[in-house]
Every structure is written in structure tokens, then in C-alpha cells.
């Protein structure tokens, strides 16, 4: 494993830790989109179908279990926990996330590496992950006071995507057979969605003012 991939996985993990910290210790999910969290739970469930079939490494298995458990527990907290769910900004989290699922499934049926159940689900999870951040970005735009943990959560998620692209470039030159066009194209689209957020995040950090996205 190269340094970019490891750093990418670590920032991904860090984003989950930041979010769980906010939910578990501060008992708040203000500014967090339940729609995005539900999509991530679906993304991991669809992608990690091979969890008990193909063993890659202990690292791989443990990380998959961590992402599955954390994504489902975040959804549980936001829906069922009696204190946390009251902080959920339902009125502003109105993105119709169901409309993202069907086109992604259709695209996965059309464009996949092999027409088998697991490969179609893998492609579906890649496409869905690329757009899963949209409800969160829309909610951020509508939130007047974005708290630091929410900003950091989205920043780490975006950093993870950037590092994965660097990882693919590295692997492309060092591993002759490393070709996954589907994840590359979807990954670049996903990273571009963060560009606007990154711009405002870095500006607010540089000027030492509170993060606020223009409506």
C-alpha cells in the first residue's frame, strides 16, 4: 500500500471519528444531513458484499467493518437516539436522495466491469458514493452557523477523495495492471463536487472567520 492510499484511508477514518465525536459526546447532529448518511450506509452495504468471500488483508477487513458499523450507527443515532435526533435539521435537509439511487443503479447495470450481481453492486456503490455528498453540501449551504466539527467532517471527507486520486496516479505508474476506469471517473466527479466547499473552507481558515457558504 502506498502513502497516498494510507493517508486517504486515514482522513476517511478521521472524518468518521469527527462525526461520531460530535454525535456521541456533544449529542448533536446539527448541520449533518441524514440523507447523505443513509446513502453512505447503502454505499458500504453494496460495496462490501465480498467481505466474507474474498479475503484481501486484515487491514482491509477491519476497515470495511469499521465503515459499515460506523455508517449504520450514525443513521441509527440520527433517527432513533432520543437526544441526538432532536438536533437534526430536518426542515433544511430536503434533498430528494431517493432520486439519486435509481439512476445510479441503472448506470451500474449499463456500465460495469462484468455483468454479475456483485460487480453491478460494486459499480452501483461507486456511482452512488460520487453523489452521496450532495444532500450534505446543500444542507451546509442552508446552514447559517456551520460549526467547526461539521466543517472539519466535510473537509476530511474531501481530503480523502483528493488523496485517493493521488493514489490512483501513483498506482497507474507503479502497477502495470492497475486499471479501474469506473472508480477513477466517478472519483474525479466526486472530488470536483467538493471544489466549491474547499474554496470557502480554506478562505475562512485563512481569514480566520466562521465558515459560511453563499446561498
Amino acid at each position: 500500500m502506498n502513502a497516498f492510499r494510507l493517508a486517504g484511508d486515514m482522513t476517511h477514518l478521521l472524518s468518521v471519528v469527527v462525526l461520531l465525536l460530535k454525535i456521541h459526546t456533544i449529542k448533536s447532529c446539527a448541520g449533518i444531513s441524514l440523507k447523505t448518511q443513509e446513502l453512505y450506509a447503502l454505499v458500504f452495504a453494496a460495496r462490501y458484499l465480498d467481505l466474507f468471500i474474498h479475503f484481501i488483508s486484515l487491514y482491509n477487513t477491519v476497515m470495511k467493518l469499521v465503515f459499515l458499523a460506523s455508517s449504520f450507527s450514525i443513521v441509527w443515532y440520527m433517527r432513533r437516539h432520543k437526544i441526538v435526533r432532536r438536533t437534526y435539521d430536518k426542515d433544511h435537509d430536503t434533498f430528494r436522495h431517493h432520486f439519486l439511487v435509481l439512476p445510479c443503479l441503472a448506470l451500474a447495470l449499463l456500465i460495469n466491469e462484468r455483468f454479475t450481481f456483485r460487480e453491478v453492486m460494486w459499480a452501483f456503490s461507486i456511482y452512488l458514493e460520487a453523489v452521496a455528498i450532495l444532500p450534505q453540501l446543500v444542507l451546509l449551504q442552508r446552514t447559517r452557523n456551520i460549526d467547526n466539527l461539521t466543517g472539519q467532517y466535510v473537509f476530511f471527507l474531501g481530503a480523502y477523495r483528493v488523496l485517493y486520486i493521488l493514489n490512483w496516479i501513483y498506482r497507474y505508474f507503479t502497477e502495470p495492471h492497475f486499471v479501474h476506469w469506473i472508480s477513477w471517473v466517478a472519483g474525479i466527479v466526486q472530488t470536483l463536487l467538493y471544489a466549491d466547499f474547499f474554496y470557502y473552507y480554506i478562505m475562512s481558515w485563512k481569514n480566520n472567520v466562521k465558515l459560511e457558504l453563499p446561498a
Binding site: R5, D9, H12, D50, H54, I56, S57, N60, M63, K64, F67, E113, W122, Y164, R171, E175, H177, F178, V179, H180, S183
Partner: peptide, 10 residues
């Protein structure tokens, strides 16, 4: 032949 790499990423 173009081999597809194993899906070892998360």
C-alpha cells in the same frame, strides 16, 4: 490481455 486489478480499495 488487460487484466483487471483486484478490488483491494475501500
Amino acid at each position: 490481455e488487460c487484466l483487471i486489478a483486484p478490488k483491494d480499495e475501500l
